[in-house]
Amino acid sequence: MHPQVALRPEPFGALAYHYGNRRLVFLRHPDIVRVVRNASSYPSLREALAGEGVEEQRWPSFVKALSSLTTSEIIRVR
């Protein structure tokens, strides 16, 4: 997660706000919130998804979501 990003829990998942670029992004599922929050403690994205209990058939949609979060700089590639 980008150091200038804050997450606020909401019933649907969370709101992510980037203080630098002022972008507000909706994380629309509790699972994606957990992955975003904890990804940095895993050696790879694959292990993060597995470790956070995301079933393998959902990985493509998670990769897509995470890639769009990279574009808005909510998360960064190490």
């Binding site: 606020r8 829990p9 909401e10 019933p11 709101l15 629309r28």
Partner: peptide, 12 residues
């Protein structure tokens, strides 16, 4: 459904 969720209110 996100709009529906927002219509029912956010925590803040």
């Amino acid at each position: 459904s996100l709009v529906a969720q927002m219509k029912s209110g956010l925590d803040a």
